[in-house]
Design a protein around this nucleic acid. Sequence first.
DNA 1: GCTTTTACCATGCACTCGCATGAGAAAGGT
DNA 2: ACCTTTCTCATGCGAGTGCATGGTAAAAGC
Lengths: 199, 199
Amino acid sequence: MPKIVDHDDRRRHIAEAVHRIIHDKGMENVSLREVAAEAGMSMGAVQYYVTTKDQMLLLALEHIAVWIGARVAAVAARQSTPLDLLRETMRELLPLDDERSYLNRIGLAFQASSVVDDDQAAAMRLGLPLLLSLLAEQIRAAQAAGQLAAQLDADKEASILYAFAQGTVNATLVGHYTPEEVAALLDYHLARLRPGRWS
Amino acid sequence: MPKIVDHDDRRRHIAEAVHRIIHDKGMENVSLREVAAEAGMSMGAVQYYVTTKDQMLLLALEHIAVWIGARVAAVAARQSTPLDLLRETMRELLPLDDERSYLNRIGLAFQASSVVDDDQAAAMRLGLPLLLSLLAEQIRAAQAAGQLAAQLDADKEASILYAFAQGTVNATLVGHYTPEEVAALLDYHLARLRPGRWS
DNA sequence: GCTTTTACCATGCACTCGCATGAGAAAGGT
DNA sequence: ACCTTTCTCATGCGAGTGCATGGTAAAAGC
C-alpha cells in the first residue's frame, strides 16, 4: 500500500480555501487555480479530490453548514436558562464579530448561489430544517420554563427568528446596521415574546 | 446634429437583459457578450452605454431598486386601511408569485454581490433607508388609526419586518416554504402587533 | 451635398477559465 | 530491490472573458 493521506483533511483545506476566496473576492472569483493557490497545493491535487468546480462549491457549502451547525450546537450545550440559550443561539447567527461576519458573508453568497444551482439548493433544504427545529425546541423549552409566552407557536416563531437573522445579514454587512444595533433589535423582538406581555 | 436615441431606453434594455441572465444563470454567468446577445444588440453597443462590467452591474442594481420601489409605491397609493397597506407592502416584498420571485432572485444575487463590491454596497445603503422609512411610516399610520399597538417602536418594527421579508426569500426560493406558508407567517407576525393583545 | 456629431459594429488582444491527459514521485507490501 | 497503489504535478486545449481600437452608418445643420 502506498502513500496514505487523510482525505478529509485535504478536503477541509480545499473547502476553507474556497471560503476565504468567497469572503475576500466573492463567489465569481472562485476558480480551480485560485483555490489551489490559496490552499497551497497544485491544481492537479485539487482536481484529485474534486472532479468538478460545482462539486468543489458543494463541498465548501457542506463544510460551512457543519461549521455553523457546530457553533450553534456548542451554544446549546452551555449551561444557561432556556431563554438565554435561545438568545445566544440567535446571536450566533448574526454578524456580530469578525468570525460571525466571515461565516455570514459566505453563507449569503451560497444563499444566492443555491437559487441557481440545484445541488446546492438540495443541501440548503437539508440543513435548514435542522436549525429551525433546534430553534423551535429552544422556544418550547423556554415556554415550559415560563420564560416565553405559552400561546406562541414555537415553529412559526422559530421561522421568524431565523428569517430575522438572515434578513439582517446583508444590511449589517453593507454597513447599514452596526453589530450593536442588530443585537439590540434581536433583544427588542425577544422581549415581546415574554409572558405577561400578552393579553 | 446626428442620430438621436433615447439613452434611458437603451440602458433599460441593458439592465433588463442583465436581470434575465442573473435570474436564469446566476450572477457569475453575466458577461458583456451574453448581455449583448440577450438585449439583442451588439457588444459594441453595450459598451457605448456602459464602459465597464462593474458599471453594467451597478446599472442593473439601480434599475431593480427603482423597480421594486415603484411597485411598493404603487401599493402605498392604493385606497385601503393603514394596516392593509402595510400588509400589502410587505407582501410585495415576498416571492409570492412569479414576478415577485423574479425580483427576489435578482435582489438576492445583488445582496451577495454588494457585500464584495463597494459601489453596489453604497447603492444598497442608499435605497434601504427609503424602504425602511416607508414601512415605519405605514406602521405609525396604523398606530394612529388604532390598528397597531401604540407602544410599538415603529422604526424597530419596520426593521424587523424588512428583515423578515429578506430572510424568508432564500428559504422560499429554494423550496422550503410555499408562497402560502410564508404569507401565513407574515400574517401571524402582523397579528401580534395589533392592539389589545398587549398587557 | 458636405460636414459634424452621434451611435454602432467587428475585430483583436492578452488573459483566464474548466477540464483532460500523461507522466512521475512517494511509500508500504513482499 | 521491486512492484503496486496512491497521490501529485505540469502542461495543453478550446472556449470564453473584459476591454481597447479603428472604422462605419446614420441623421441633422449649414
